[in-house]
Design a protein around this nucleic acid. Structure first.
Lengths: 203, 203, 203, 203
DNA sequence: TTGTAACCGAGACGGTACGTCGAGTCTTACG
DNA sequence: CGTAAGACTCGACGTACCGTCTCGGTTACAA
């Protein structure tokens, strides 16, 4: 933070300030277009045109279309990434609250499209995948894991329960169902999942 | 005249014979290229060149690049799609056998790349997704469900256990871990998963 | 010629047939645009659009914009390139006829623009310059030289007159005047030039 | 204080001083680059970089790239533009001296490249052409014409000889030969040209 | 035994988008 | 306040592939 201030005061050209209008316009345009035409038909040229920005400006700040979409995605979801889960003392209830919310998010068409674009891109581009994992998946997993640990400390889970596995048993099925559209992502489904997982991990 | 009738009865005049060489060459070339450059950089032109086939021949037999990849995929995995699981009486052991094999498949780089290509395509193309679900996912799920039902009948699972959920609790975490590369897909992981899921579903 | 026929009869794909429509459309479009916007603002993209042709088709058949313009130019002037000059026995009159015609050509705005484009290109591109010299300049010079030689044989020029110099003394001033717009290219000017040159070279 | 006053009296408040360094750097950089990469590949950006000058500074002082090149050119050739020719009494010898020098200049690669850049630009840009004609061509022509007139007065040329034509008959072929590279620009060539022209114009 | 019709390889076609370059304009921070 | 640095919008570049469309040539049945 001190560094940050210093940097602004002394001899760094700090291009960040300059580009802000353009950056925002690009992200907004990309978000709109993602919702309108989907990722497969999203073109850099269209983003530039919509954002009233030169194509070069996009290539100056983002290495690829995927990176732009990544930023769109983090603006949509990133805010809450890594926020701690509620802890009312009732582990099942807290988890249900959180994963119901996740399920609801997937139901939003804009979110659905963007997340699918995202998931697809993760498959092609290993570097991108790494970035996603570090910045989104791990913080979220860690938040869930923290809540599980607190439950474990309270004796609601077996002391030797594998919490990494537990996190994946919660996220995995929900993702799987959404990803392959094998069924609707209802609150009942989430509740049953949470209950079954906790049943498998209790002392 | 008799011949004429015969021809109408035989109903495959012959083009299939001719085309067979080309079809195989296309699928082989696509499989090789998928392994070499990945799906994102896979082009119809490259497939045609590698297969020593005219581009038109590809478009004659497959509606899109995705369809070619689909066929590659079904040749790799389709054989066993829907095959019944072993039933030794020991439900946990049988599931572990099957899912360990699945985990091993994901470890094969060729399989990994192809499956990722596939997963990505499923995100873009809803129609494609439907075909995949019907022809690959559902048969496999059904086979697992059948084995679970047999275990349920044998009293190894609660009589009211939700088998659809159970199937997803097995597939979901494995897929999730592979898809997002959040950790290694070891046999231990599979075993622990199977045990925890069954623990959650037992009577 | 025999080869030509053979080639058409036997196993040569002869892409010429296929491309003819496109080639013509490109040349026509380029000619129009040259006249409308001039060479400096002539773009490959505009030619392609006007010709209803893919850009690639232009790049397939011509290595550069200059080459397209070259073909436009040869279609405009190439027909008569190297045609023998009239030989009425009156050397001065014959030369005047020819160079008056040249001067008139330069007066045509379309021709003017195209030729200027051409001259500019010759300055940038040495290879292009070579092609122009070989295919246009030399044949024309040779034709003039032939007429001069015939006059020399008839005793109208000194037996030791340098005909290469003579050709350049005729072309040079005309080109110079047009190129640098130092004065109008009238018939009188041409006549005076021819007379003076012949006077300098007579026996 | 006295200094201060003096400075105000000098009437160039100071920006000019400031800009002079930049102007020179730009011209020098442009001259170097012209020689190195030629006009076609000369970019304003490269000039600015080489001159350690902001691009804006170039656009502040010159309206276009052509104008910069123009200034380069005038610095190379402008010094002697319009200087009177020697007058030893021997017209042929004096003309040979001057045009041999011209031919030699064309042989210098830096001069060659710059002049070609120039000639090309003259074709595209009519305004530029006008400037060139007025400031370079006409003064030079006038100097030659003056020497010819002096020869005419001395009876070495016909009293009714067209001196404008004469000037063009000297410049034209030399330019033509250089421009189209139709042959080497040797001293012999120049001598023969001068002799033939004078022969055509003598009384 | 030979037409003839579909299929084949090859690759040109009209297009769309790519990622890059440079033009000429605008903005920031320094000196 | 003028400058160097360099980001900005714009538009063209030349390339890569798309999916369609000819080309001749080559089978392989039906007559």
């Amino acid at each position: 933070m001190a560094d940050n201030t210093a940097e602004q005061n002394r001899r760094a050209p700090d291009p960040r300030r300059r580009s802000q209008r353009a950056r925002n316009a690009v992200i907004d345009a990309a978000a709109e277009l993602l919702g309108e035409v989907g990722y497969a038909k999203l073109t850099v040229e269209a983003i530039a045109a919509r954002a009233k920005v030169g194509k070069q400006t996009i290539y100056r700040w983002w290495p690829s279309k995927a990176a732009v979409v990544f930023e769109v995605f983090t603006r949509l979801t990133g805010a809450e990434a890594g926020l701690p889960l509620p802890d009312t003392g009732d582990l099942a209830a807290d988890l249900k609250t959180v994963f119901r919310a996740t399920a609801d998010e997937f139901a939003d068409p804009a979110m659905d499209r963007t997340t699918r674009a995202f998931t697809a891109e993760v498959q092609h581009d290993e570097e991108f995948a790494r970035a996603v994992t570090e910045r989104l998946i791990q913080p979220n997993s860690e938040a869930v894991r923290a809540r599980l640990r607190s439950g474990q400390d309270a004796g609601q889970l077996a002391p030797d329960a594998d919490l990494d596995l537990a996190v994946e048993m919660l996220n995995g099925p929900i993702n799987h169902r959404w990803l392959l559209r094998t069924g609707p992502l209802t609150h009942e489904y989430v509740d049953r999942l949470v209950d079954t997982v906790l049943r498998g991990l209790r002392p």
